[in-house]
């Protein structure tokens, strides 16, 4: 049995990736299961999905804690979450990233086989949207051979209308062809991230009291972003409307009435750009300024 854990952000399609492969495996006569991990997920927030594929019936119904393969749809996650948690040393990490092998190894603390794919680029080229799920399936198949490429392509034609299926099939194939594989490499254990300790019920104050008002500011939602507002001060008419309409209070008005963007919290919704009467805000793809 192969056990796989997907890490993505709400809206990127981690759950769909797991489903597509499970359905393809079942059609091939294998046993498979896929499940999302439920939590208070929101568009842009980190999400998990699990997948098992086996030649034998699968009896287990639990989350995947010791995966053979981890698939990461968004590499900003490696800086905040221990994505390689429980990943077997001889396992495989498939990651959508533009980062170098060294940085990926350093941040994940993983010394095993890595497959790297610039999925966002392929998704934008082939689909025109930053949804990397099918692209990631291509990379996963290339690195693991978990199912044949054709089986995944067939699933896409079940799932999408012909035009969209074809676009996705192109993305899948392109990803399959442009995945880079890095052989296992010894890394110093010091690079490993300590797994964050989760609070248990014992740590909770009576009445689930929360003592620090505004403590959510510790949660930097800026890394949920898939596009970012870029401000053109020359065009700004200092009306303040972007500040008024930001759902995340990520814009402040300066003393001179121009505005500042707080990219620690800006989720990249684009409302400010939409509402700006002076066209002084443009949305650019990507999390960070180029």
């Amino acid at each position: 049995m192969q056990e796989i854990r997907f890490h993505g952000r709400g809206g990127q399609g981690a759950v769909t990736s797991a489903e597509v492969i499970a359905e393809a495996a079942i059609e091939l006569g294998l046993w498979a299961q896929s499940m999302p991990s439920f939590g208070p997920e929101r568009r842009g927030a980190p999400v998990l999905a699990y997948l098992r594929v086996s030649k034998e019936p699968i009896r287990i119904r639990a989350e995947v804690a010791k995966p053979d393969i981890v698939v990461v749809l968004d590499d900003s996650l490696i800086f905040t979450i221990d994505v390689a948690s429980g990943l077997k040393a001889d396992g495989l990490l498939v990651i959508n990233s533009t980062q170098s092998e060294d940085i990926i190894r350093k941040e994940t603390g993983f010394g095993g086989k890595i497959a790297r794919i610039e999925a966002l680029k392929i998704a934008m080229e082939c689909l025109g949207v930053p949804i990397t799920n099918t692209t990631m399936i291509g990379a996963l198949i290339k690195a693991s051979g978990i199912i044949p490429l054709e089986a995944a392509q067939k699933q896409l034609s079940h799932r999408f209308n012909p035009k969209l299926a074809e676009k996705n099939a192109t993305a899948l194939k392109k990803a399959f062809e442009s995945t880079t594989i890095y052989a296992p490499k010894k890394i110093s254990a010091a690079g490993k991230k300590a797994a964050a300790k989760k609070a248990t019920w014992r740590d909770i104050l009576p009445g689930a009291l929360v003592e620090n008002p505004g403590g959510s500011k510790a949660n930097l939602t800026g890394d949920w972003r898939s596009q970012m507002p870029v401000y053109d001060k020359e065009k700004c008419s200092k009306c303040g409307l972007c500040y008024v309409f930001c759902p995340d209070a990520a814009i402040t008005i300066r003393d001179d009435k121009y505005v500042d963007f707080n990219y620690d919290y800006c989720k990249g919704c684009g409302i400010c750009a939409m509402e700006c009467p002076a066209d002084a805000i443009a949305m650019e793809a990507g999390k960070k300024k180029k």
Partner: peptide, 17 residues
């Protein structure tokens, strides 16, 4: 701000606004 940044509303949530 009495409803602080860092809340987990979806991208573009106007309930949060």
């Amino acid at each position: 701000e009495f409803f602080a940044s860092g809340h987990r509303g979806c991208v573009g949530c106007c309930l949060a606004l």
